[in-house]
Design a protein around this nucleic acid. Structure first.
Length: 665
DNA sequence: GAAGTCACG
DNA sequence: ACGTACGTGACTTCA
């Protein structure tokens, strides 16, 4: 990524956004697409392609506006036909492709077929043989197409297709357009699946996949479905994706997110695909040992809890636990209730009651141990891929409202670190072989640096420019003591305030978390804003701007629509206002690390390095670093992370290596 | 499938 | 007078 990043185009008011926008809660307002449905009735031309079934008709099941759309979906089977198709596609500037597979998990899926489209209402489907060698041979005919740098590849959730083809040694190259990611930038908080997009933007109901493979216990794989049916389904997906591309393309520009799309989100797709494929080595024996030890400890605590309660019960049931604590033991006469009327038994509630009865601490211990055991110790070993012995997480690029990634199956972005016992789990994240070591690189205080940059508050900018410990510097200002005389307590409180700032906290919220009275908390906040007046002004500006525009935006113009920002309900409006403060900060940080990831990936490729980027945890990147490359890798990682998105304060990256993730921290 | 809880940044 | 810090995903219980 080149230096000298751009400032987002000046935004259009919401009223000038594209007409195809689903709008918040009232997302039902559907754009009219008369051109699509005014297509002439089938001519003899279409009859040439009819297969003797009803493939020319798509009927709307639950729409009053049942319509007939003529289409032309062709099965391509013979080698001659495939070659002719490849020839045709290779002359295009762009094409849509979509893979059909036997499984949603790429690492246990086989290719079943590939569909293509280059213009609306037409598509091709190529079934692939079940036999691996034959499938590979057939795929070789398509390789030049996917690897052609000069053709734009269009798809819906391209990471899946790219990962799938990579399993067969085919790398998809050239510029890309993912309709899912395009829509994510336009409406990050809406859904982005194809069925939804087709309905909203094309007023079109797609064939439900359940119609083919069934659902529940007796679900089939795509391989077991008659090829004529798969053809209809797969070709439709390619066709719809093409039509969505045509709708979404102009909207990216209209909404000022074109650059973000082509220079960040799209280039990130193959990077994430590769990171997922790289995988992470887990020391499962280590985890199993800890699990056994935890199991015995849990059993002991369980008995103590039953003893203290005077009866056995299901400790994992918040309902039963609440009744034991607040009805049987009467630990708190005015116990807090949840919104459904149950007793609240969350950690923050229990902690405040821990002095009242010894059972409380036992329950907290029980909870933390069972959490660690079920979510990590027992779950992770079961997710190791038997083919390569590695764990492959999946990064979702279109989930969060702010532009962050999320990780699932398993989530590797919430591996324990805060408590002593939990932290031990990180020892089980190890290098893939003895020739490797783990390198962890994380941005230091990135969100506060972004606030300093956005607000240009002189005091905070100065603290960062002088390389001060920001929380200590804040404590010195708020508590009126010299920097070198700040106590741990003062620093810790200042840190809590700095965090609160990022989230748009209230005095009440701060008091809750710092165990201060509300007035003490209010006092600290008051002093904070006296010292950092620019921060307060920035927060007010963020809210005012969101009010005017209807959205908040990051440094690079990533938007989050805040439809409640003018709500008459102060609670609802308060949420939107805090989002107006937080989204640009959290989102700019997300933009920054995405740019860094793309830059690092390109360098690793260019230099044909063996080191692998394996994890992203919001402000941290983890690498399986080849020992011979360690110095080079560190230099690349630092350079790309520090220079990804220059701020008006220094961006600092901390790096460490170790024999496991815990030691690399 | 919702609710409650808790793991992370 | 009101409710109360941002963003996620996984597990368990229970209707």
């Amino acid at each position: 990524m080149p230096e000298g990043w751009w400032i987002a185009d000046s935004p259009l008011p919401p009223s000038q956004r594209g007409t195809g926008q689903p709008t918040g809660a009232s997302g039902g307002s559907q754009p009219n697409t008369p051109d699509l449905f005014s297509t002439p009735t089938p001519t003899g031309e279409f009859d040439l392609f009819h297969q003797g079934d009803n493939s020319g008709l798509l009927e709307f099941s639950d729409k009053d506006s049942a319509k007939t759309v003529p289409h032309d979906y062709k099965l391509v089977e013979t080698e001659a036909d495939i070659k002719a198709l490849v020839e045709l596609l290779s002359q295009q500037q762009q094409f849509v492709f979509d893979t059909e597979t036997t499984n949603i998990d790429v690492y246990s899926a086989e290719l079943v077929g590939v569909s293509f489209a280059i213009k609306a209402h037409e598509a091709w489907y190529l079934p692939m043989p079940a036999e691996r060698e034959a499938c590979q041979t057939k795929l070789e005919l398509l390789r030049p197409l996917f690897e052609n740098e000069s053709i734009l590849k269009i798809g819906q959730n391209l990471k899946y297709d790219i990962s799938m083809l990579a399993q067969y040694g085919v790398s998809v190259k050239g510029k890309m357009f993912d309709t899912m990611l395009a829509h994510y930038l336009l409406e990050p908080e809406q859904r982005h699946n194809m069925d939804y997009l087709a309905e909203v933007y094309l007023n079109y109901l797609t064939i439900p996949i359940e119609d083919l493979i069934g659902k529940g216990r007796q679900q089939k794989t795509m391989r077991e479905v008659p090829v004529e049916l798969v053809k209809e389904y797969a070709a439709e997906d390619a066709d719809i994706t093409l039509q969505l591309y045509e709708k979404l393309l102009p909207l990216l520009k209209d909404n000022g997110v074109e650059k973000l799309f082509y220079e960040i989100e799209m280039p990130l797709v193959p990077v994430l695909s590769r990171m997922e494929a790289n995988g992470v080595k887990i020391d499962t024996e280590n985890l199993q040992q800890i699990s056994e030890a935890f199991g015995m400890e849990i059993q002991k605590i369980e008995e103590q809890i039953y003893q203290a309660a005077g009866t056995p019960f299901n400790i994992a049931s918040p309902k039963q636990l609440g009744e034991i604590l607040f009805e049987r033991l009467r630990i708190d006469e005015k116990a807090k209730k949840t919104k459904t009327g149950q007793y609240a038994t969350g950690e923050d509630v229990l902690k405040k009651l821990s002095h009242r009865h010894p059972i409380i601490q036992m329950i907290l211990d029980y909870r933390s141990l069972t959490k660690l055991k079920s979510t990590y110790l027992d779950a992770l070993p079961a997710l190791v891929n038997p083919k390569d012995g590695l764990i492959h997480t999946s990064y979702n690029q279109a989930v969060t409202a702010t532009g962050r990634l999320s990780s699932n199956n398993p989530n590797l972005q919430n591996i324990p670190v805060r408590t002593e016992k939990g932290r031990e789990i990180r020892r089980a994240f190890v290098p893939r072989s003895p020739q490797y070591t783990l390198l962890a690189a994380d941005y230091s205080q990135i969100e506060l640096r972004i606030i300093a940059h956005l607000s240009q508050d002189p005091a905070m900018v100065n603290d960062f420019n002088l390389g001060h410990d920001i929380h200590a510097a804040t404590a010195a200002k708020v508590f009126h003591v010299p920097m070198d005389q700040v106590t741990k307590e003062q620093r810790s409180r200042a840190k809590a305030v700095n965090f609160g700032i990022i989230y748009g906290m209230s005095a009440f919220g701060l008091a809750e978390r710092m165990e201060l009275s509300r007035s003490e908390a209010a006092d600290i906040i008051k002093k904070y804003f006296e010292e950092y007046a620019g921060i307060k002004e920035y927060m007010n500006r963020s809210i005012a701007l969101a009010r005017e525009r209807g959205y908040a935006e990051t440094i690079l113009g990533r938007r989050r629509y805040l439809r409640d920002i003018n709500s008459a309900n102060s609670v609802v409006r308060g949420f939107a206002e805090r989002n107006a403060i937080n989204a640009p900060i959290q989102g700019s940080s997300a933009d920054m690390i995405k740019i860094a990831m793309i830059g690092i990936h390109q360098e690793l490729e260019r230099l044909k390095m063996q080191s692998k980027m394996i994890l992203q945890v919001h402000d941290e990147l983890v690498f399986d670093a080849h020992l011979d490359e360690l110095d080079t890798l560190k230099a690349i990682v630092n350079d790309k992370m520090v220079n990804a998105l220059p701020l008006s304060v220094p961006v600092v990256v901390e790096m460490n290596t170790g024999a496991n993730w815990l030691e690399a921290h």
